[in-house]
């Protein structure tokens, strides 16, 4: 089985990092995984996305035309990726940063105010982890506990103080289900 996830938002929203946490967790769970970033003449405030492919067998293409899941952290990401999600797939939308509802009816859609939830926890920058938690609660790739473990095991020593907050963010996001 193979699952492809695109995580997309503005530079600075932590999309690449969220993808890395997902990739670390997949690796620790014994899965095959690739993490492929958009790279280029990008800057803070520009767009940033990454594709994470998780599989039980040797992974072919690290990018896909029709991903199984998309995390849209802002409006340009929703506009760009909504139509590309494979039928039956999953779209997680950050309500805090968009001004429209998704239109697809053949996919599962999870809508949550990730920025506000992250603020409640204490830091708006944890919105990426809130989104990731919502994804894991709605598609069957990895248990949230695997990500909690990955955060603990792969966060640099000087950043360990943020791990507990990120775990809380994952759990709060995990409370949301597709309508």
């Amino acid at each position: 089985m193979q699952t492809e996830v695109i995580i997309s938002g503005f530079g600075g929203q932590g999309t690449l990092y969220a993808g890395q946490v997902l990739a670390y967790a997949a690796m620790d769970e014994g899965k095959q995984v690739t993490w492929f970033p958009s790279y280029g003449p990008e800057m803070r405030g520009g767009t940033a996305n990454c594709t994470v492919v998780i599989s039980d067998e040797e992974i072919g293409s690290p990018t896909v035309k029709y991903p199984k899941a998309v995390l849209a952290l802002n409006l340009p990401s929703l506009d760009k990726y909504e139509d590309m999600i494979a039928p039956g797939g999953c779209l997680v939308v950050n309500e805090s940063m968009v001004n429209r509802k998704p239109e697809r009816t053949d996919i599962r859609v999870v809508i949550l105010p990730a920025n506000e939830i992250a603020q409640e926890i204490g830091n708006e920058r944890a919105a990426n982890m809130v989104m990731l938690g919502a994804l894991l609660a709605n598609i069957d790739i990895l248990p949230i506990e695997a990500l909690e473990k990955a955060l603990k095991n792969h966060t640099a020593q000087r950043l360990q103080k943020f791990v507990e907050m990120n775990i809380q963010a994952l759990r709060r996001g995990g409370e949301y289900r597709a309508a």
Binding site: A23, T34, W35, F36, P37, I59, P62
Partner: peptide, 10 residues
Amino acid sequence: DGSLGQMMEP
């Protein structure tokens, strides 16, 4: 190529 250079894998 750029893809292999930039991607992460276990």
